[in-house]
């Protein structure tokens, strides 16, 4: 069997984790002792991720900033009680999820919006435009409907290396709330699938469905852009 992506991810993460455990313990010690650089370090590490995640719950950027500030205060207040049963990162994210949820509920407009998008965009729409398949379910035309290779040396790969990050940020920002939360936690922040299930109170199967839709939409956005550009270069 060929090695699966997940396995390679897991093992590289596991190496990082064993190294990170002691590093994390030291960081917690320093935070408890009121070490300012430790706090700055942690803010630098997670602030942007927290803003991204908060924006999956609340629609307004300034509200997201407020929520994240609250999170940092809660982290400082709670760090003495933190028992290390989860990683520091998972703990910080769980505080964010709780605060952002409460805040999101208060924002009545965003409820209406997320309810709409949940129905329309997380539903049963297929991952790939059905018009790209023949009636027998196989890819249609080699040149126009087949997914193209993004291998080394292709114009697509060159574009990805240049503009991939910006494109991705846009595609992720455009995702409906639930899909965005799962994708950010799993793929951007590399949280464990079990942790994400606990954080979002969903089943493993449910998480896979959300992750599938999220990755599918992001891949589609990348493909649309890359194929459009690559055909001109």
């Amino acid at each position: 069997m060929t090695p699966r992506l997940e396995e390679t991810c897991r093992s590289s993460e596991a190496v990082g984790r064993t190294g990170a455990l002691t590093e994390e313990a030291v960081l917690i010690q320093r935070l408890r002792a009121g070490d300012e650089t430790a706090f700055t370090e942690m803010v630098n590490r997670y602030h942007r991720a927290l803003i991204r995640l908060a924006l999956a719950h609340v629609s307004d950027r300034s509200v997201a900033e407020e929520v994240v500030q609250d999170v940092w205060m809660a982290v400082l207040e709670g760090i003495d009680r933190f028992e290390g049963r989860s990683s520091l990162k998972t703990w910080v994210f769980s505080i964010l999820t709780n605060k952002a949820k409460t805040r999101g509920v208060r924002e009545s407009r965003s409820i209406a919006m997320s309810a709409l998008s949940a129905e329309g965009e997380e539903g049963d729409d297929p991952t790939v435009d059905p018009s790209r398949f023949r009636t027998n379910g196989h890819w249609k035309d080699y040149w126009t409907d087949y997914p193209q290779s993004w291998d080394e040396g292709t114009p697509e790969r060159r574009l990805l290396e240049k503009e991939g990050a910006g494109l991705l940020e846009q595609a992720i920002a455009a995702l409906p709330s639930r899909l965005k939360q799962v994708l950010i936690m799993r793929d951007v922040e590399g949280l464990d699938s079990k942790d994400v299930c606990v954080l979002l109170s969903i089943s493993e199967a449910n998480q896979r469905v959300l992750l599938h839709r999220a990755r599918g939409k992001v891949r589609q956005a990348m493909e649309t852009y890359l194929e459009g550009q690559a055909s001109f270069s």
């Binding site: 991810c9 890819w139 997914p147 193209q148 990050a165 992720i172 793929d187 590399g190 891949r219």
Partner: peptide
């Protein structure tokens, strides 16, 4: 081939997501 490219695209997308600059 179509599906092989498709899987490769998904993997590339995930990898690029994991490497987003902070």
């Amino acid at each position: 081939n179509g599906c092989r490219h498709y899987l490769q695209q998904v993997r590339t997308t995930i990898k690029t997501t994991q490497q987003l600059p902070r």
